[in-house]
Design a protein around this nucleic acid. Structure first.
Lengths: 213, 213
DNA sequence: CTCATTTTTGACATATTCCTCATTTTTCTT
DNA sequence: AAGAAAAATGAGGAATATGTCAAAAATGAG
């Protein structure tokens, strides 16, 4: 086993002591297995097998599946949102930020479908992951209202609606085609109160700037 | 056990032979247990216990959980969508139909939270349930485009986005307050390309007609 | 290289769930 | 009310999962 393409957590632990490296292997395996079988559907043994360690090794690191999901999903949240936010540090126009962030997130999902899948599983199960995921989004939405671009109340419902549109994209089109990305970006902008035409314009602009990078 | 308030399937089998009555009890219990523990999380024994029958009885009716979910969710889909569609037979204005259907669906969820929960679980797992759920929705959306009210392409992604907004409402506010219902109705109208102001107007009108009934 | 310390191992005891089927109980037709 | 057919029962074997721990192996600091 251990045929993952990604190596997010093991990458982070290269050079560290054995303990951290094994933890990284478990976390990476958890991504693959949670994505494939779903959180409820995965057995501890699925993860240890995939990580090429003995059954008992799991219990040297975690007491149960919940703790593992917590670490995996939170790690993904920090990694993904941090990365995207950095890349947008110079963008101040809220609709552009929202469209760009959405497109970047879905691009990530095309390259590493398991990441978004597991992140979202975690966001709906572990409160702390939900907070981490929502954090930046909420800022950008409020910025859009302040700028007079978004015409809608920002509350918990809206933020969750936003996230659910992301999730649906991954569900309906796991290959995450350009078309799905663009349609989803437009949908989130309509959700926050932009007109169809306006949303289209913003998305085209955002996606162009994405191709340059 | 068997403390359900609802009795959808047992109601349908009153007067029928024992076989159908027991099947009804299993189906009603499945609603409660699936809603409480989730499909993956429920054990066959949870359902038989709740239905006040012996463990082995389950296997006189179904081979596995999947078949049970299929029957339960499809039954709910037929019941709920059929009911709502009947009540709207005289409404021809697409935005009104969409807002009304959404509000009625969420009202149902307020009264019987378990129904919508299980229906949606089924819609994301059993293809046949998804078809049954989508059926009417798609018609109304296309009607709205034809009437020049909705400004968006109708495809599988959009329909699923729509359904996911329904789901989020139930997730974020299980009590399903009036506010949540109205906000969700407005959100779905924005999703299909109506302006924030326009959506608000439609929802107010639709909700008023709902109070009369 | 050495060896105390850390980490891994995997057999096993415990626990859970599934599913069957011979037997008992209930149903309902006549 | 009798009795054949239908349905329900629940003990128990098979399969799967969990969590523990004494012993073995690997690590890495000096």
């Amino acid at each position: 086993m251990n045929s993952s393409v990604h190596q997010l957590f093991r990458q982070q632990t290269i050079g560290k002591k054995k303990r951290e490296r094994t933890r990284g292997a478990l976390l990476d395996s958890a991504i693959s297995v949670f994505a494939k079988k779903g959180y409820e559907g995965t057995r501890i043994s699925d993860i240890t097998t995939h990580a090429d360690v003995a059954n008992g090794t799991f219990y040297n690191y975690y007491q149960d599946k919940d703790q593992l999901l917590h670490d995996v999903a939170l790690g993904l949240a920090v990694e993904i949102t941090g990365r995207i936010n950095e890349e947008m540090s110079d963008v101040t126009h809220a609709p552009t930020r929202v469209a760009l962030a959405t497109a970047k997130l879905l691009r990530t999902s095309r390259k590493e479908p398991e990441w978004l899948d597991v992140l979202l599983q975690g966001a709906f199960i572990v409160p702390e992951v939900q907070s981490a995921t929502i954090q930046y989004l909420r800022q950008d939405l409020e910025m859009g209202v302040d700028q007079g671009e978004f015409n809608v109340d920002i509350d918990l419902l809206l933020v969750n609606q936003f996230i659910s549109l992301i999730r649906v994209a991954a569900l309906v089109d796991p290959t995450m085609s350009d078309e799905t990305i663009e349609n989803t970006c437009e949908a989130v902008l309509r959700l926050v109160g932009m007109s169809t035409a306006n949303a289209k314009t913003q998305v085209i602009a955002a996606c162009e700037s994405l191709l340059e990078a």
